[in-house]
């Protein structure tokens, strides 16, 4: 059951990045869209994520519940040492989640729309930035539960070039995912071409951000290159991701919209695998070479068993329903009469 719980933890994190990340990306794209095209972009993205919006963010809750039930010491260490970025992440989550829904459900459309939109796009940028910072902090090894002073304990644990670079990279990945997903949602050929151009641009941006991560790692003295390329799994994962990126570039303009989507999801999965594999089973690296390992910090066996069963049982209900939700809103065309009643 230990590995079931661990697998679900990684699955929840991955799906949050793939699905929730695309939601964040939707806001990021909106931020970097010219005023002329903003309205269309907004509508298109809304069509794509409106129905699945709430569900996409449940993965974060699942991940956090797995952490505090199954790995209480990891959760409490994060909560103390990374309090500040977690707090900022939460502010982003609050602002984004409410602004998105308020924008759509405000009965009167006036200049409040601009307020909601502004909050939505900036919080879409800030939230994944801090998710990335948290991920970078977990890897960098500056988390120090025994730190003597405030700055070492609560600020330098996460405020360093590596974590910030991972944050920027996460933002770029989210934007990339969203733009790939959006191509298939475009209603006109002009929009489709615009989204394709945007995706190509974001691939370049993501590459640059990736290079930034390597640069920051070198600056901080972290052996990122050997983490990723020092083992066959990481090497293969990155090779596959690169090849699939080439394929994606080539098929981007094709008629089968699901191909680039799958490829983009595959690439992000491979990146996580490459980074995660070198460290497994460690979840947080601490200052001084200590690790918080998923295998060592597990809750008592009875708790892990109960959690594992709860997750397995939950999947029986959740996954088919979720699959049907995605399926339905991919395939059912928008009814003609809806615009009259919907405001």
């Amino acid at each position: 059951m230990n590995y079931v719980v661990i697998a679900y933890l990684y699955l929840a994190i991955l799906l949050y990045l793939l699905l929730g990340g695309a939601d964040f990306g939707a806001g990021i794209i909106e931020l970097f869209t010219s005023r002329k095209n903003r309205r269309v972009t907004q509508e298109t993205l809304y069509q794509a994520i409106g129905p699945i919006w709430e569900a996409n963010h449940m993965w974060l809750i699942i991940a956090i519940v797995i952490l505090f039930v199954g790995f209480p010491r990891i959760y409490s260490t994060m909560s103390v040492s990374l309090h500040i970025p977690l707090l900022l992440l939460l502010l982003g989550i609050i602002a984004r989640g409410t602004a998105f829904v308020f924008r759509h459900y405000d009965a009167v459309h006036d200049r409040m729309q601009t307020v909601y939109a502004t909050i939505f796009v900036y919080s879409s940028l800030v939230t994944p930035l801090f998710i990335g910072i948290l991920a970078g902090s977990a890897l960098a090894g500056y988390v120090d539960p025994a730190a003597p002073d405030f700055l070492t304990a609560y600020v330098w644990s996460w405020l360093h070039w590596f974590a910030v670079a991972v944050g920027v990279f996460t933002v770029a990945l989210c934007g990339y995912l969203a733009s790939v997903y959006t191509i298939g949602e475009a209603t006109t050929e002009a929009d489709r071409l615009r989204f394709i151009r945007k995706t190509r641009l974001l691939i370049v941006v993501a590459f640059a951000a990736g290079a930034l991560v390597f640069g920051a790692a070198a600056y901080e003295g972290l052996p990122l290159i050997s983490w990723i390329f020092g083992n066959p799994v990481g090497l293969t994962a990155i090779a596959l991701a690169t090849v699939s990126l080439g394929v994606l570039w080539y098929v981007l303009g094709g008629s089968r919209t699901w191909v680039p989507r799958v490829l983009a999801g595959f690439q992000v999965t491979m990146i996580l695998l490459a980074v995660g594999y070198a460290h497994f089973p460690d979840f947080i690296r601490l200052r001084g070479g200590q690790h918080l390992s998923l295998l060592e910090q597990l809750a008592p066996a009875k708790t892990v068993a109960a959690l594992g069963w709860a997750l397995l049982l939950g999947s029986v209900f959740i996954l088919p329903a979720l699959g049907y939700l995605y399926y339905s809103f991919q395939h059912a065309s928008r009814p003609a009469g809806e615009a009259a009643v919907e405001v």
Binding site: A55, F68, V69, P72, L307, A310, F317
Partner: peptide, 17 residues
Amino acid sequence: GPIFGMPFSLEGTAFFI
């Protein structure tokens, strides 16, 4: 967490649904 986490794990499912 490990003691009273059970209702939270089930709640995760319920909330998701």
